[in-house]
Structures are given as C-alpha cells and as structure tokens.
Design a protein around this nucleic acid. Structure first.
Lengths: 219, 219
DNA sequence: ACATTACGGTTGTATTTACAACAGAAAGAA
DNA sequence: TTCTTTCTGTTGTAAATACAACCGTAATGT
C-alpha cells in the first residue's frame, strides 16, 4: 500500500496531507488494497457499498446494462480519481452500475464511516480528509446540476444558449473560451455534432453570437 | 431561532439529533436567522457562498436568467429543505442562480466550515450532522447521475427504456409502480407528454412492455 | 345527479433532429 | 514540401419530436 502513497497524495481526497500523514492514516481509514485483472469486475450491479474507492493503477469503466441487455458505458475512471461516493448513504440502495477493469488495475477501498467519524488518535489531518471529500462531492454536485440544466432544454439551440450563457457568467465576460472542441461539446450536451455545428452557424448568422474555434462572443 | 427547532429537527441535516442538542449546537454551527419579504432575494447570482441554508418558513424559487434575459425556474425549496450545499467548495466560484422568496420567508444560514470541523466543546452530536450532511449530498449526487443517465439518451424511447430499466433494477422486479403520472414522468425526462404517451403505446404494441396507470411490466 | 377537473391516449402538422456523406482548412508528421 | 489526420462547416434525407387540438374515462366536489 505504501507504494501508492505518491498517487494518493495527488488525489482530491488527500490534497494537503503529507506522505507521512497519509501513511499513518491508512489503517485508521480502513484502507484495503485490491488487484483486478483486465476484464474483472471491481463492483457489480446489485451489491451494496459503504466505501469510497480510489484507483491507483490501471483503468476502469463504469457501465450499465438495461433490462433488455443493451450495454452503455457511462464513464471511465482514471488513476487518482475516486468513485463510489454516491452510494455510501444507507438509503442509497444497491448499485445500479458495474465497474470493470479495462486493464490490470489496483484500487484502494476506504471505509466511509471511518472517514466521517474523525478519530482521536494520531490523525492530525483527518479533518482535512473530511473537508476534501465534502468539497469534492459538493463540487461534483454543482457540475451535475449545471449540466442537467442544459440537458433539460428541448432543442439544440436552447441547450447551446443555456451552456454559453453559463460559461459567460462563470468567466464574467461576454467573450470567453470554452474547454471543448465541437465534438466534445456535442457529447457534453448529448446532441449530434453536425446538427449542433449547423445550429451554431445559424445563431451566428442571426447575430446572436460570434465564434472562432473555441472562442465565443455573445451579443 | 429557538422557535424553529421543531422544523430543524425534521430536516435531513439534523436527523437523529434531539431538541436540546440542536439548541445547544446553533451557536457552535454559526447559525444566523434572516427574514425575507415576498419578492426579495435570498441569494444573488455572482455572490460567493460558504453557508448551507435551511428554509424554516415560507417558500423559495431557484431561478436563472440567461445572457439574453430569458428566465427559467430551476426548482423550488420547501420548508425543511436545505440548499447552497453545491456551492460551498472554495473552487466552486460565484453563484450562477438567484434564490428568491415567493412568500415571506425565514431561513437559517449555517457556516459550512463550522459544520465540517467538529468542535471539541459540548457538541456531542456534531459528528451526526457531518454524517447527515454527507449522506444527503451523496444521495442527491446519485440521483442526479441517474437522471443524467436517462436524459443523455437521444430519443424518447431510449429515455423511457433507460428509466424503466433502472426502476426495474431498483425494485428488483420486472413489474413495478413508478412515482409519477404521465405528465410528471414527461417533465422528469424532459420530453413532451403526448409524444411520450405515444411512444409508450408503441412499445406496448410491440410487446416490450405492459402498463396500467403507474404500474409497469417489462418483457 | 350533475358539473368540473385531472389524466391518459390519439392524431396531424410543422419543426427539429439524427445520420451519413462530403469538402475545405488547419495542424502535425514524415 | 507532401502526406496524413483532425477539426469544422455544409447539405440532403429520413426519422423523431414538439405542439396543439380533441376525445373518453375516472375521480372529485357540490
């Protein structure tokens, strides 16, 4: 486990905690290390979870099969990222997704209850972990709500207007750059790229916006 | 503030904490009570927030204006519900929404930092607040991800398949009831009611599903 | 019993989208 | 340079959606 402290150190969860402190806290946080071969399941649909998990080596896919067996990949987990934090509440019920190793992978499980209830012994930085975890999940929450706000619009144009307005607010200016290229933006908003490109040009021709690559300006 | 302890007691935040303990913890949590007249702003777009807020009387709307001034109401806050938890991380930036009182309202602000860093003095149940808050936001997170999973599907049929599959998994049966009527389900999935109704009937005619009111069965 | 309202299903049309295919520009590699 | 790849815009068509309007039924209240 000690081999991975340099990875943990760079995660959101352990931000601001030194090597020695992480090392000292591992047992206090109920840390357990597991290895998975390519293709093996880290978590299965139907299981119950009370841990937050950090990927320290390899790569994972979060995927879901619907009732009729159609599989869709919801996302991927990169080294240093955590997952499982949305299922730790007692009322959250069974997992609805599978998590599968797409390469040989190594993860560390942390017992949520041990994270939340700060111990009295030794863990000088335990409060930081609680804070980091809370801020991380709070931040994720905010981003999800924002994205949902765009996606709940019916037409591509409305989605674009919602997204661009928000980006303008965030950057506090009517001109700004976005962190996506066209394909990525289309994926983010769940629309077809060419249709979106078409709509962007219409909006430009109507004098609503101007753009060049990922630079945008609202009028 | 003491007048509202019976309200706080029934919130997710203070679940499991007794009247006396809540009363004792208020100052420790940096609680501040504010009143707003109908139409006044509780929070404004552009402000920074480091508090979690509980509505103890009245009603609030969370709303957003886009760059061109089109207003949309994103949700409403009922008595006993908390809000603001998505904006408390230092990196979350300025608020992108307004929160407006639709009736004369009373809210209590709690300092997030005081919630997270459990104090040593007197607050026997402080750890419970941290846990409650964490589970609440984690739960919200899970629901958002699920909803986003449905909404990211392109067609009404795919959205329905995604939603019904998940409901089937949750209730662990191929037949189940859903907590929505048609209009509510359409709103939840952000589609047109009549188009959705049409699609449901097509799916029924194709032998994929059967339903009666809010009872569904998958084949 | 009657009127009213809420809900679910159906249909037609105009609008919008997805999808595929293609072309030009820009960036990068050989 | 030249070739290749990536990115973006454009167009046409088939498919899906939104919207409005209408009907029948069930539930509710007077």
């Amino acid at each position: 486990m000690k081999n991975y402290i340099h990875i943990l150190k760079r995660t959101k969860l352990f931000a601001g905690v030194g090597d020695d402190e992480i090392s000292a806290m591992l047992s206090c946080l109920g840390a357990r290390l597991y290895n998975y071969k390519k293709g093996e399941y880290v978590l299965r649909q139907g299981e119950h979870l009370s841990d937050i998990i950090v990927l320290v080596e390899g790569n994972l896919h979060i995927q879901k099969d619907d009732y009729w067996g159609n599989r869709s990949i919801l996302g991927q987990v990169a080294v240093g990222e955590m997952f499982g934090e949305a299922y730790v509440a007692p009322e959250s019920g069974a997992l609805l997704n599978d998590v599968v190793a797409t390469e040989n992978s190594t993860v560390i499980f942390f017992d949520v209850r041990k994270i939340i209830t700060t111990c009295s012994s030794g863990c000088r930085f335990h409060y930081l972990i609680v804070q980091n975890m809370f801020f991380a999940i709070s931040d994720k929450n905010r981003k999800l709500v924002q994205k949902l706000g765009h996606m709940s619009k019916r037409t591509t144009r409305e989605k674009l207007i919602s997204y661009l307005s928000e980006e303008s607010k965030k950057q506090n200016s009517s001109s700004f750059t976005i962190p996506f290229n066209r394909q990525q933006l289309a994926d983010f908003l769940s629309v077809d790229r060419s249709a979106m490109s078409n709509e962007l040009c219409k909006m430009r021709d109507e004098g609503l916006i101007a753009f060049d690559k990922n630079y945008f300006r609202l009028f």
